[in-house]
Design a protein around this nucleic acid. Structure first.
Length: 543
DNA sequence: ATAGGGTTAG
């Protein structure tokens, strides 16, 4: 067997290894080769062979195997191996925590870090950036502040990786002042640290400070890179500020940089988020015209704009592209596709995608449950919700419960809905939000339990909004309760003076009750306030 | 080991 550059081409059949009676060296080379581009299956085969030869638990191999699985997002495999190694060495912890943080499992990253500390392993400067990242993404400021203490105590504050990660953590937690203080305390300010602070300013809405910082640092000789500019573009585009987006593009040109796929994706994403679907499609086309290939992020950004029957054709084309490129497997793109089909009413297509999915996150589940619930497949929605509860790797979140409660409300399942509302708080420690109260009011109200709905509203720990009162008013109308309807309408008038929605609803209520004089009076009020009723509309697809 | 773009919402 030849060992060296061509080692990736070696057969992955364990019988072949066995017959060659491999040495440790061969395994090491194989593992290193697989680490970069090996398929998951090849790695598993090699792993099996190491187990047979009693080598899997040797620290040297185990660390490499952990890294192999972690890199392919096989965190449960990585964790299992990790647990099988008795020896406690910080490298293993770094690999595992880093993998969790890189793949978005922030809670796991932090809990493994706590575990590491409980076992008496002292954090070093290599593990801290990953943990700080997890804190930031999870907005765990308390933990982040403790880590800041660890950094100072161990004199890690001169390590640029650690400090940049610290600034990023404070930025993500919305503690811009702290981020600023750390940045200005740096002796050698580096680009990554500056970019982290720019991102903090933007998230905090101090757009001008972000621009000023970049200009200031330019004067001091720092050269912004494409990451700096993309951060600015993303922030401005989300704010729907096309003028500033253009300004940044000009700055990029001045610096001799051109827009990359991340720049385009940021622009498209902002347009879609701000409902400029046509402009987003235009940008998407221009991006293709300049020869850039959309990534899974581009696809997940543009798909929500196709989630209407009128633009389904484009959505289908994009779906085709994801199948050809392999992007379809990406959990973001997959969830967006499921949502798109569901929103267009193509439940069976959504379902097919959902059932073929190997990797699902809460968004994937929620999209499908919402799809069912919003199209009247209430029992399917509830069934899927229960399946999610049974499959423990993904916990339901506040949107899962919104989706499930919506299904209950459409199906008139009052008791079950009430039990879910309770379970959400007691078992999953999710505080009810406005949308949950709105669902509950809708659920109780539709069932004619107006007093219970009203009591619920009055017991709310947060101020009811127009959806809550709107649901209540709708129920009052349905059941012809004028007294409670007037209470709701008054609250609505306070909340949404600029919209005529509640007044229109109230006027039809009065019409139902044959109080024509009141209808006329209301219509005058609406006219006087120049309120506009948004007409309902429908789309047909023209081939 | 650190910085940029992404999916669900009554």
């Amino acid at each position: 067997m030849v060992i060296g550059a061509k080692v990736t081409r070696v057969s992955t059949n364990p019988i072949v290894y066995h017959s060659f009676n491999c040495t440790s060296d061969v395994y090491t080379k194989l593992l290193e080769a697989y680490a970069q581009n090996g398929a998951l299956q090849s790695g598993k085969t090699l792993h099996a062979h190491l187990v047979i030869n009693g080598l899997a638990q040797k620290t040297h191999f185990a660390s490499k195997l952990i890294a192999f699985y972690a890199e392919r997002k096989q965190l449960p495999h990585a964790r299992k191996l990790f647990d099988q190694i008795p020896e406690s060495n910080i490298r293993r912890w770094i690999v595992l925590i880093g993998a969790y943080a890189r793949h978005g499992f922030y809670e796991e990253a932090m809990s493994v870090f706590s575990e590491m500390q409980r076992e008496g392993v002292k954090p070093n400067k290599f593990v801290l950036p990953s943990v700080l990242k997890a804190c930031g993404r999870f907005s765990d400021f308390r933990m982040g502040a403790i880590l800041h203490g660890v950094i100072l105590k161990n004199e890690f504050e001169f390590d640029s990786y650690v400090v940049s990660a610290l600034i990023d953590m404070y930025s993500k937690c919305g503690k811009v002042e702290k981020a600023k203080r750390v940045f200005y305390g740096m002796v050698d300010k580096d680009l990554v640290a500056m970019n982290a602070l720019v991102s903090g300013y933007l998230q905090y809405g101090i757009v001008n400070d972000a621009l000023v910082l970049v200009e200031e640092m330019k004067i001091q000789g720092m050269k912004p890179n494409v990451v700096t500019y993309n951060t600015l573009i993303a922030g401005f585009s989300q704010e729907d500020d096309q003028v500033l987006v253009c300004k940044v593009i000009e700055l990029m040109h001045d610096d001799g940089l051109e827009l990359d796929v991340v720049s385009w994706t940021s622009i498209i994403s902002g347009l879609v988020q701000n409902f400029h679907n046509r402009e987003a499609f235009g940008m998407f086309k221009r991006m293709l015209d300049v020869g850039l290939c959309p990534t899974s992020a581009t696809i997940s950004s543009i798909l929500p704009a196709c989630a209407t029957v009128a633009d389904l054709m484009l959505g289908r084309e994009i779906h085709g592209y994801t199948m050809v490129t392999g992007i379809e497997k990406d959990v973001y793109a997959k969830s967006a596709l499921i949502d798109m089909y569901a929103k267009c009413g193509l439940i069976s297509e959504a379902k097919e995608l959902f059932s073929k999915t190997s990797e699902r996150n809460s968004v994937t589940w929620n999209s499908m449950i919402f799809g069912y619930a919003n199209h009247g497949y209430c029992s399917e929605a509830i069934e899927l919700f229960n399946q999610m509860l049974r499959e423990e790797e993904r916990k339901p979140d506040h949107l899962t419960f919104t989706a499930a409660l919506t299904a209950c409300s459409h199906a008139g399942m009052v008791q079950y809905g009430e039990s879910l509302f309770k379970m959400m708080q007691d078992k999953y420690a999710i505080k009810p939000r406005l949308e949950h109260f709105a669902c509950m009011v809708d659920l109780l109200g539709r069932a004619g339990k107006l007093d219970e709905a009203y009591n619920l509203i009055q017991s709310m720990p947060i101020e009811p909004d127009l959806f809550v009162w709107g649901a209540f008013l709708g129920a009052c109308r349905q059941h012809g309760n004028m007294d409670l309807a007037e209470i709701a309408a008054k609250q609505l008038a306070k909340l949404e003076p600029e919209s005529a929605g509640s007044s229109v609803l109230l006027s039809s209520l009065y019409a139902d009750a044959s109080k024509w004089a009141n209808v006329a009076k209301l219509k005058r009020v609406i006219k006087k306030k120049k309120l506009k009723k948004f007409p309902g509309c429908s789309w047909v697809e023209v081939a």
